[in-house]
């Protein structure tokens, strides 16, 4: 296991932007003085005339992106999740969501794996905020391959899209020749019969690790990777819940309003099942290394394993 390739999804974002930039001359990229961190620098280098640095003014950047889409461009506006979804929420809602404009929001540094910067920059609320905007697609890729696929899919899709990327390097788990990506489709990564673990982002790898540990205890866990939180692959989740009868959600996000809530929304309509929501339990994060934080807040494989065990007990 020592040789597992690790890539931060923000790196994947920058690299994918170069790919889509080559394919489509209308793709333009916006930043708010964070190009070095959002990893869009590679796009800026490849297409200097199509990279627009708006300075430290995220609300204005949101409007600039909206205007560029009205002028026929496909803008990717980039910033930290805290500022793209948090600070500029109302601009995203009114200048992009309400007119349903073809703007893509690339939000990096989501969740607690921001690490040392601490709670002010650790956005655990963005999925909740973005889900509430009618017509907004919300994606949270699990690894390099999925992150790149999400960017490509966003270009093909006509309408507003929010994609969440992380700062810390995460294992590549989708590196297989059969991998296919479609907006709104989840994937069963491991079949099981006793419990369903629905995970997104960095927690997909944690869920797979937890499933290994559970197997040693004789518990068969089904692991579902949900990249698109909205629209949610409800059928996949409900069918799995019907099989296992118990559902755990795992996300690097508040348990209020994120994947866990979306899964509960889906289940309560047609198959109410007990759900354990793993995530940030209505608390702010703190400074520390990404690894230490993930361990402390029980979002790593061991943390997920322990919480599943407790839930099933």
């Amino acid at each position: 296991m020592a040789d597992i390739k690790k890539v931060a999804t923000r790196e994947s974002y920058g690299n994918a932007l170069v790919e889509v930039g080559k394919e489509n001359p209308n793709v333009v990229v916006l930043d708010a003085d964070l190009a070095a961190a959002t990893k869009t620098g590679v796009f800026k280098k490849a297409f200097p005339d199509r990279h627009i640095d708006c300075g430290i003014a995220e609300c204005n950047m949101t409007g600039i992106a909206a205007g560029l889409s009205l002028a026929g461009k496909i803008p990717f506006m980039s910033s930290f999740a805290m500022f793209a979804a948090g600070r500029a929420f109302e601009q995203v809602r009114n200048s992009i969501g309400y007119p349903h404009l073809n703007v893509k929001i690339g939000a990096t540094h989501a969740g607690i794996t921001v690490g040392e910067d601490g709670a002010s920059h650790q956005c655990n609320e963005d999925i909740a905020l973005m889900r509430t905007i009618p017509g907004m697609v919300v994606m949270c890729p699990a690894d390099d391959i999925e992150a790149k696929a999400a960017v490509h899919a966003a270009v093909e899709y006509e309408g507003p899209v929010y994609i969440r990327f992380g700062r810390a390097a995460v294992p590549v788990i989708n590196d297989n020749p059969d991998y296919k990506f479609e907006i709104g489709k989840g994937t069963i990564l491991r079949e099981g019969t006793d419990v369903t673990i629905v995970a997104t982002g960095i927690c997909v790898d944690s869920a797979l690790g937890a499933a290994e540990l559970l197997a040693k205890d004789g518990i068969s866990a089904e692991v579902i990777n949900i990249c698109t939180i909205k629209p949610l692959d409800e059928e996949l989740i409900i069918n799995s819940a019907k099989k296992t009868g118990k559902v755990v959600t795992a996300e690097e996000h508040s348990v209020i309003g994120g994947l866990g809530s979306a899964v509960c929304d889906a289940l309560c309509k047609s198959f109410p099942a007990p759900v354990c929501k793993i995530g940030m339990q209505d608390i702010f994060g703190e400074s520390g290394s990404a690894a230490a934080l993930v361990e402390k807040y029980k979002l790593d494989a061991k943390g997920v394993y322990e919480q599943v065990k407790e839930f099933l007990a």
Binding site: I52, C59, N60, T62, G63, I64, A65, A66, G67, L68, S69, L70, A71, G72, K73, P75, Q91, S95
Partner: peptide, 9 residues
């Protein structure tokens, strides 16, 4: 802001 974006576009 939107007007600026259209003008830039």
């Amino acid at each position: 802001s939107v007007a600026c974006g259209i003008a830039l576009g």
